[in-house]
């Protein structure tokens, strides 16, 4: 029995004294594709940010590849895809330059990029279908293409675990398909995935397990829930992903 890739034990996270996650435990094994689902404000993004050490745990523990987060140093094994391109960027940067950042965890700060780095960046750009846009400034790409750039950046580091925060939110259909294809390639290579999603879309067939976060706790951990009510309607138009006060209708029934 190998160590789980991610272990969260009794994790508690709070912002300004307000609890966001209370007593959350989660384990993700090698090769799994785990989707964290839940309404806005349920704490699902906070959960993955806590896993990555971006928000401190109030109590409980997180371990990555069997190593407690505090002592974890093998960051090259992890590829992180944030929800949006960072606020940085007063200066233009090409898609290729952004993707090339993904090699730093593997290469280190001091070593200049070499042939292997260039090859990996090319492959990552191609895997998300952006090879022809490599030289374009990211600011001129569409939202979906920017999201794909961030996925390519994570893939360029040849990680074993991908952690994605809402990779499909507000992304056009072509980009969702390109993303699902890239993810399939990553999984074929033996990768593990933890992703936060509001809705699964074309990713649904790839997900092996769903974890539903509701009001800071885990409400469900197992099979991917079938869409209920009006969500099940094939013509249902998902126009609400960023509504501020959406009721948790899908999961509370």
């Amino acid at each position: 029995m190998t160590e789980p890739v991610i272990t969260v034990a009794h994790g508690v996270v709070g912002y300004d004294g307000r609890p966001v996650l209370r007593d959350v435990s989660l384990a993700v094994d090698t090769g799994e594709v785990v989707a964290i689902l839940g309404a806005n404000g349920s704490g699902k993004s906070t959960l993955i940010r806590a896993v990555l050490g971006l928000v401190p745990l109030h109590s409980g523990s997180v371990a990555l590849f069997g190593t407690p987060l505090r002592r974890f140093r093998q960051w090259k094994r992890i590829g992180y895809v944030p929800q949006r391109l960072g606020a940085g960027g007063g200066v233009p940067a090409t898609a290729r330059e952004v993707v090339a950042s993904g090699r730093l965890a593997r290469r280190g700060v001091l070593r200049p990029p070499g042939r292997a780095d260039r090859v990996a960046v090319d492959a990552a750009l191609a895997s998300v279908g952006l090879a022809d846009r490599a030289g374009d400034p990211v600011a001129t790409l569409s939202g979906g293409q920017q999201q794909r750039t961030l996925i390519a950046r994570a893939l360029a580091g040849e990680p074993e675990l991908l952690v994605l925060d809402e990779p499909t939110a507000g992304v056009d259909a072509a980009s969702q398909e390109a993303f699902a294809g890239a993810l399939r390639g990553f999984l074929d290579g033996g990768g593990t995935v933890l992703l936060v999603a509001h809705e699964l879309g074309p990713l649904r067939p790839l997900i092996s397990r769903a974890v539903v976060v509701h009001q800071g706790g885990i409400a469900h951990d197992g099979a991917v829930p079938e869409p209920a009510g009006h969500h099940a309607d094939p013509d249902h138009d998902h126009v609400h992903p960023h509504a501020p006060d959406e009721p948790a209708g899908l999961w509370s029934s």
Partner: peptide
């Protein structure tokens, strides 16, 4: 490369294990 990564997306740089 490292300074670009930090200035472009500090959170990503942290997860990439950069100092």
């Amino acid at each position: 490369p490292a300074l670009f990564a930090v200035c472009h997306d500090e959170e990503y740089a942290r997860v990439a294990g950069l100092p």
